[in-house]
């Protein structure tokens, strides 16, 4: 059966646990699955484990137990699996993490050449089309320090997309931005969502969730407290903790 039918879930997370030194349990028997093309929004108070969950998905954090399978590839100690998964999973960080010594174009070209083994011309073509997509082709030859926060984050999205990943992870991608720049980054993310990209988004932007999410998870203490559509969260949250949290962020 397996391999013949199209895989239903592109991300399969089964009972993962993660404990940080000092005894903080960031994830406790955490399980979920994400369908191809699904947009999953993860919300929760700080320290609830939502960022840790995201960082486990591409191996930036090691899990203590449980299993993660991305597009059929298990995330284990096998170095090949790890690199393969990182090619297929793009990530956007809260603090952009652009490479400051490289120009915008070089930032986006680098992994295409090193990881996807593209020629200079192929990479350049891809890079320009991505810069047009995120709306800043005119900044191609600038250094990141000459860009605004919103522009830097859009470059970071383009950089992740350049590998043509099957999944995109967004770790509070708009939290470090000035309010007037949040919109331009969210617009790019919404476009991606509508194009059918599988996305896992840690955010406090409930407006974004309302517009494009298929499912919302509310986390606290390393566990899923409540799960449902965004309408469910707006109209009919069940748990006290969920109601309290929503009343604080809305």
């Amino acid at each position: 059966m397996q391999g013949q039918t199209a895989r239903e879930f592109i991300i399969e997370v089964d009972k993962i646990n993660k404990e940080f030194p000092g005894g903080v349990r960031a994830l406790v028997d955490f399980s979920t699955q994400v369908r191809k093309g699904e947009v999953l929004v993860v919300i929760g108070p700080s320290g609830s484990g939502k960022s840790t969950f995201l960082r486990c998905l591409n191996g930036l954090e090691e899990i203590d137990s449980g299993s993660i399978v991305i597009d059929g590839i298990p995330l284990d100690d096998n170095r090949k699996h790890r690199l393969e998964i990182r090619k297929e999973v793009g990530m956007v960080f809260q603090l952009f993490n652009l490479f400051p010594h490289l120009t915008v174009v070089e930032n986006i070209n680098l992994a295409q050449k090193l990881v996807r083994k593209k020629t200079k011309e192929e990479a350049a073509e891809m890079t320009m089309s991505l810069l047009k997509k995120v709306g800043i082709p005119e900044k191609a030859n600038n250094y990141p320090s000459h860009l605004s926060g919103g522009q830097q984050q859009r470059v970071a999205i383009a950089r992740a997309l350049a590998l043509m990943p099957k999944v995109m992870l967004f770790d509070e991608a708009t939290s470090a931005l000035d309010p007037e720049m949040i919109g331009e980054v969210l617009d790019v993310m919404k476009t991606l969502a509508r194009e059918g990209m599988t996305m896992v988004v840690v955010t406090h932007e409930m407006g974004f969730a309302r517009e494009v999410s298929d499912r919302v998870i509310f986390m606290d203490g390393g566990r899923i407290v409540e799960e449902g559509t965004v309408e469910h969260f707006f109209t009919n949250p069940q748990e006290e903790r969920t109601k309290l949290f929503l009343s604080q962020i809305l």
Partner: peptide, 10 residues
């Protein structure tokens, strides 16, 4: 910087 590079598969 490490995390960005690793997440890009470097």
């Amino acid at each position: 910087q490490w995390e960005a590079a690793h997440s890009l598969g470097l």
